[in-house]
Design a protein around this nucleic acid. Sequence first.
DNA 1: CAATCGTCCTGCGGGC
DNA 2: TGCCCGCAGGACGATT
Length: 270
Amino acid sequence: MPELPEVETIKLQLEKRIKGETIRGVEVLNPRLINVSVPKFISKTKGVKIKSLRRRAKLLVIDLSSGDSLLVHLKLTGLLIMDQKPDKHTSVIFEFEGSKKLLYKDLRKFGYMKLLSTSQTDKILNKEFGPEPLSKDFTPEKFKELLLKKKKAKIKPLLMDQKFLAGIGNIYAQETCFYAKVNPERKVGTLENGEVKDVYDGLRKIMNAAIKSGGTSVDAYRDVDGREGNFITRLKVYGREGQECFRCGAKIKAIKLSGRTTCFCPKCQR
DNA sequence: CAATCGTCCTGCGGGC
DNA sequence: TGCCCGCAGGACGATT
């Protein structure tokens, strides 16, 4: 599922491929995932230039030169893919110069592509999310300060809380806890200073490494060229229930935390 | 007030 | 083989 590293990968690729291009044609095959009527969507995007691309949390923003923006959430199975043949999961097709095409697809249709004014988009991005884990102002001190306000929360679900921290989902929250040798159910208030620092370091290292690998392909995720992300080969706990821990050899356990499957090593994550 | 639950959707895997 | 059931999951709204 696309989390911060996957959306960042798509953003970087789209920047190279469609930034500055003019949308020559628009086709909406499934109106369910857009927030305005099909005629309005087409009239507001056709003939308009792609001004810039941004990412905030797991959201991708495509800014248009008209003062509007497309706010895209890929949720679990959303894809933005260039130059593929449309299939039954294709919701929107943008056409550019030279028959270049961008397809917006979503197998489970949990995602959305909202046409909003850029100022409306900015309001949403600024209000509803915690800090970006890779930003400069997300320092170890800042992280500690934020944790102090959430002493009773369990660490793993908290890392996934977009209002607390932006862009972390089920895969990277599990991987971060493994890195820090912290049990996902640990109450934040019981974490020692060293553990807090390890969680912080884990977040930064894992996010950076995952972006370098082009993200993680579990489920449907593919990059803009339809390629898989390579970070899947470096996952330590996600999806490894019953297998041996890479660090200590104990059996990886799976539990449910706020309804989400959570894998961890009961021996070396305390 | 904060945590948890149901919901959206579809492909796939388990069980018989 | 084939069918049916249930599960997976981000985020929102409803509930406890």
